[in-house]
């Protein structure tokens, strides 16, 4: 039993800018639930010009009340009001020569209850110009493709030129619940070994049946995913807009303001965002 959701989108920003925005997407006004972001591994291969990054995000989330009804909260490590924290592991590979960025994020804990794997593939569209014409454009074309971010003296003043370039993105989310499977296995093992002992955790499963429970949890996960996707997209767009307006400095200034707002517990900029915006 797996739920799958997929969508295509086009950003009206050049590919290099989109990859930079991906790394700089937290914090933004739509991500006040993201508490921290750390890079835990990074590798650059000069041969292929590929950059691989592994990051760890900590997100605050509210357990959907529907899940609270299905599974005891104590089992999920959530507080009485449903507040919980989730670690998200994110892996990304950028290939600047071939013009793609492949990203995958997944929750680290409670993967048995519900594993959510989110994948985003960003691509520089194939040039519309026929090959013969491209040859004449020569180096200029190549430089343009790589240099959408120009620098006004200082590196930090990088700006995105409005070149009319776009980036295609395919997003997909796979939701999979394994709840009950381990306990079932454990129970089978214990029956085989002659033990009649049954873990207490089985209590709430008995009334549901494992597959119904899994199906329901996946459904709840999908509902949340559908609700959080627009916010994730808006967040990226805010970062890209800041880059277009004020370059890297503009993005960093915006991030600082968002971070201060988060620390102060004020969601000033979030008024237009949906209240329940965890990814």
């Amino acid at each position: 039993m797996v739920k799958f959701y997929s969508t295509n989108d086009t950003y009206s920003y050049p590919f290099p800018a989109v990859t930079l925005a991906y790394f700089l997407r937290y914090p933004n006004p739509y991500s006040t639930h993201v508490l921290s972001t750390d890079t835990i591994a990074r590798n650059y291969d000069p041969e292929t010009q590929r950059l691989t990054t592994i990051r760890l995000h900590l997100k605050r989330s509210k357990l959907p009340s529907a899940v609270g009804k299905l599974i005891p909260r104590s089992l999920l490590g959530a507080s009485a009001n449903g507040d919980t924290q989730t670690y998200i592991l994110e892996k990304s590979v950028v290939d600047i020569k071939e013009g793609w960025m492949d990203t995958e994020s997944q929750n680290l804990e409670w993967t048995g209850v519900l594993s959510v794997v989110e994948r985003q593939m960003f691509k520089r569209p194939a040039p519309a110009v026929p090959d013969e014409v491209k040859i004449f454009q020569g180096m200029e074309g190549a430089a343009r493709r790589h240099g959408f971010i120009t620098f006004g003296g200082l590196g930090a003043g990088a700006k995105v030129e409005d070149s009319g370039e776009t980036t295609e993105v395919t997003s997909s989310v796979t939701l999979h619940s394994h709840i009950g499977e381990t306990w079932k296995k454990r129970r089978a093992a214990s029956v085989e070994s002659g033990g009649e002992e049954q873990p207490q955790k089985m209590g709430f499963l008995r009334s549901w049946g494992t597959s119904t429970l899994q199906k329901n949890i996946e459904k709840i996960g999908l509902t949340r995913t559908l609700r959080s996707q627009p916010n994730a997209r808006e967040g990226m767009k805010v970062v890209l807009e800041r880059m277009r307006e004020g370059g890297l400095v503009g993005v960093l200034d915006g991030m600082r303001r968002d971070r201060e707002a988060i620390l102060a517990g004020r969601d000033l900029l979030k008024k237009t965002a949906r209240p329940d915006n965890d990814e």
Binding site: L20, F23, Y44, L51, K97, H146, F151, G155, A156
Partner: peptide, 13 residues
């Protein structure tokens, strides 16, 4: 960020 935007994205790293 400096390395990424000035070198990596330009393919000169």
């Amino acid at each position: 960020l400096k390395w990424y935007s000035e070198k990596f994205l330009r393919g000169t790293s």
